[in-house]
Design a protein around this nucleic acid. Structure first.
Lengths: 126, 126
DNA sequence: AGTATACGAAACCAAAAGGTTGCATGTCAA
DNA sequence: TTGACATGCAACCTTTTGGTTTCGTATACT
């Protein structure tokens, strides 16, 4: 077993609608579990599990205060999403790149599967 | 049963790493299933299922040509992701909004759970 | 000290996800 | 027309996911 096997990544974390609502709720306010769960039709324990998954993905931060555990959103991991999305930006500034895409599609089969770079590729600078 | 129950949304579709690779592979090239599956360590059928999920989410388009089915990426649904992300943009242009956030956090408990708007909120225009 | 509150952990469950193999069908090539 | 190729579909299997209830324990209240 690898030690740093990040079991839950951002993509998976935000896949669930409940977790997206959780993030939204915790955007501005730090809240304890019971208060949070009052906003959802599921049990407190279920909410707690969702919070754990978000936590593993780094999207929330927990702070124990007395008997409660307060949660707050942590936006940093969203950068990975942003970066992933930026790979497809070429589809939106379609003026110049439409031609480029066509040309690329003409090339012989290669498919090197290098994956979207994790740092934003500022196409605007072209 | 509601007729338009979109079983798979974008968030779910991109949650799986294999599907993200699929999208990447099909970004520029239209490819038939067998050719696609040569790039993955799983069976052709498994790839086919992933393609279906992507298709349901609107992220790929299929075109039957003779005996093959060619797939190509369809970027439009990513707009929803983009839009969802934009809700958290306030965290990145942190100069002015840091204060605003603090103030909001001060307000009495309300939590109306209105969800991120689906149309991009151009904060740049402030 | 005794009770109420906040939470996590464990055991359990049904359904969904991700994968496999085998088969049926449509299409292309001799 | 006969065979090879491309694909989808069905049946099946295992693991993960999202949820529940019950219980233990730490903290707070009086």
């Amino acid at each position: 077993m690898s030690s740093s096997a990040a079991k839950h990544d951002v993509f998976q974390a935000i896949a669930d609608p409940t977790r997206r609502k959780l993030l939204q709720l915790l955007t501005d306010q730090e809240m304890p579990v019971t208060a949070i769960s009052r906003h959802f039709p599921i049990s407190r324990t279920a909410v707690s599990k969702h919070l754990r998954i978000l936590s593993e993905a780094g999207l929330v931060k927990e702070q124990r205060v007395g008997r409660e555990t307060r949660y707050r959103m942590q936006p940093e991991p969203l950068a990975e999403l942003k970066s992933w999305l930026s790979y497809y930006d070429r589809f939106w500034d379609n003026k110049l790149t439409a031609l480029k895409r066509l040309v690329e599609a003409e090339q012989p089969e290669d498919h090197s599967l290098t994956g979207p770079r994790l740092v934003e590729t500022k196409r605007d600078e072209l």
